[in-house]
């Protein structure tokens, strides 16, 4: 559990970090909170020749409201997110999810950017990023660009993040006034990661009918995904126990379920339905 030897450089700005990445020619990895990267290095699942520590770049940390979006710096820790008054007010589902990540130490070290860039299929935040239609601000050798959460998670530990780029911030759409949301998770008894995690954001119009539903699901498939069929089925209906039971089975529609020692694909599909029901039922009150 001792990683292979590696070089270490601390970057003082995003520009410098990008340059260092470029110079390393694919040999380097960014180090944020280190809570996903270092465990992987210790069991030698990855052995980068160089670590570029972005952990002290001040501008990458912090939370602010910009119009109808909440912008969270990539280096903001889970703990900061969970406790932040803006997040609790405008995107409580994000705080709810962040507060369920790992344990206190993990939340104090782990970062939002690291969590999303790492794209562990059992991570909590990808489900929320999808449900809050997040946009990823990315800076690379050719400047800045913005990526949609919808196209970001490509596979286990695989994202659309371009080479030699840094995720600088993530902006989450603030749900409309009166929208209800929740994050419900079944933690794996060993790792604490999500066996299934459901982030649901639902708003209803003046007629009492659902006019917008977004459901992000993590833990059960190769990557987190949006349960679009279920979302569509909800829209235009009154959110009731009856409706919820009808649409929940669609939550795993079209998705290939993962299977491991703890839970088979069949069971994961079942859990996806049950947890979708339970998450949506929380929104009834």
């Amino acid at each position: 559990m001792i990683p292979s030897a590696f070089d270490y450089t601390r970057a003082t700005s995003v520009e410098e970090a990008v340059k260092l990445l470029q110079a390393a020619g694919g040999e380097a990895k960014l180090l944020a909170g280190g809570h996903s990267l270092l465990p992987m290095m210790k069991i030698k699942l990855t052995s980068p020749g160089k670590l570029i520590d972005i952990g002290r770049i001040k501008e990458l940390s912090g939370i602010r409201k910009e119009g109808n979006r909440l912008v969270v710096g990539a280096l903001t820790t889970h703990r900061q997110v969970a406790a932040d008054p803006l997040v609790r007010k405008y995107a409580p589902v994000l705080a709810e999810a962040a507060s369920q990540i790992g344990d206190i130490q993990v939340r104090n070290r782990g970062t939002v950017g690291g969590n999303l860039a790492h794209a562990d299929p059992a991570s909590d935040l990808p489900a929320v990023a999808l449900a809050l239609e997040a946009e990823f601000e990315v800076q690379g050798p050719d400047g800045k660009e913005t990526l949609d959460a919808g196209g970001f998670f490509l596979g286990p530990l695989i994202t659309a993040l371009p080479e030699n780029s840094i995720l600088t911030s993530v902006s989450f759409a603030i749900p409309p006034e009166g929208a209800k949301s929740t994050y419900l998770k079944y933690p794996h008894p060993a790792s604490g990661y999500a066996v299934v995690g459901v982030a649901a954001v639902v708003s209803t119009g003046p007629d009492g009918m659902v006019n917008d539903a977004r459901i992000g699901i993590t833990g059960v498939a190769d990557t987190a995904y949006r349960a679009e069929e279920a979302e569509r089925a909800l829209v235009g209906k009154k959110l009731s126990e009856q409706t919820i039971l009808e649409v929940a089975a669609l939550a795993s529609e079209g998705q290939e379920m993962a299977s491991d020692l703890f839970a088979s694909a069949e069971y994961r599909r079942h859990l996806t339905r049950v947890y979708t029901i339970r998450a949506l039922k929380r929104l009834l009150i």
Binding site: H188, P189, S191, L261
Partner: peptide, 20 residues
């Protein structure tokens, strides 16, 4: 849990669930 090749597939705390 061992697989049929004798590999311990519950060989880390990610899989082996110690009580909390």
């Amino acid at each position: 849990v061992y697989d049929e090749n004798g590999q311990l597939i519950s060989g880390t705390f990610m899989d082996y669930a110690m009580p909390k």
